[in-house]
Amino acid sequence: MTDATIQSSRRAAGLPAAVPTTAAGEPKLRKNKRKWGGWWFVGPFMIVFTLVFVAPLAYAIYLSLFRETLIGGNAFVGFENYLTALSDPKFWEATLRVSLFLVIQVPIMLFLAMFAALALDSARLRWVPFYRLSIFLPYAVPGVVAVMIWAYMYGSQFGLVADLNHFLGITLPSPLAENLIMISIGNIVTWEFVGYNMLIFFSALKAVPQELYEAAEIDGAGTFRTIWSIKLPQIRGAILIATLFSIIGSFQLFNEPSIMQALAPNAISSYFTPNMYAFNLSFAGSQFNYAAAIAIVSGLITMVVAYAAQIAGNKK
């Protein structure tokens, strides 16, 4: 910050202008003071940030450079774990699975969320708070409970699917079978997170300046033209944020398949998603080092994809 900007911001804040300094030693002293004083404000954050983010990450990287085996102890192996990960078909199968999930489930979910947000914002609905709450409610249901609810419905022996089969005299394919399990999980995730994304979109729509709508009306724009030319461009930032969250969420898919495993153990493998693979490697296979490498590679992939999405989103 230059002296001039400080002075102007002081004036803007209604503070008296700082006395200009003339002596040679004084400004240096003041500069130092200013520099360290800032740490009191960012310090608490930096400490927490270091403890819960930097330190675990550094530890994971450190772990990933070793290999500890049940017999033979611990040894430094350099990047060997990473090389293994890059040529591990299980890891790539898991990554491919969540990538597919990303390109299919995320657009559907965001489209539904956008539809709901635009409907709530259209001023044609009554009881908007009621609908807003109802759509958001699944997000407030704990993941475990959500999966239990859906598991009951998916049950092909005694659940809703079984009841439908009896009632209609047909045999529906089991949603818990290997070929349909991903769609079933996508359905649960969509149900859970539509409300959350809807809320992001809805709050962004509420912040669109009223003047734009008035101007559009004067220009003779209809409802859909207003959506296309005003609402969507105005909330692009929110759409980008929701997309980034969804990308990260897809790559980190863990809770739903992990809980569903008790109901469909033969359809959900131990390496169903990269996160599940890392979890099972470390906690069932004691391969903490390799799991750390998997987690870091998977984190990097997520970062690259999310960053690419951000660049693409900002370009337009």
Binding site: A151, Y152, G155, Q157, F158, A262, A264
Partner: peptide, 8 residues
């Protein structure tokens, strides 16, 4: 096909 110990 029901998994052992499941609700089903």
């Amino acid at each position: 096909p029901v998994p052992t110990w499941s609700d089903e």
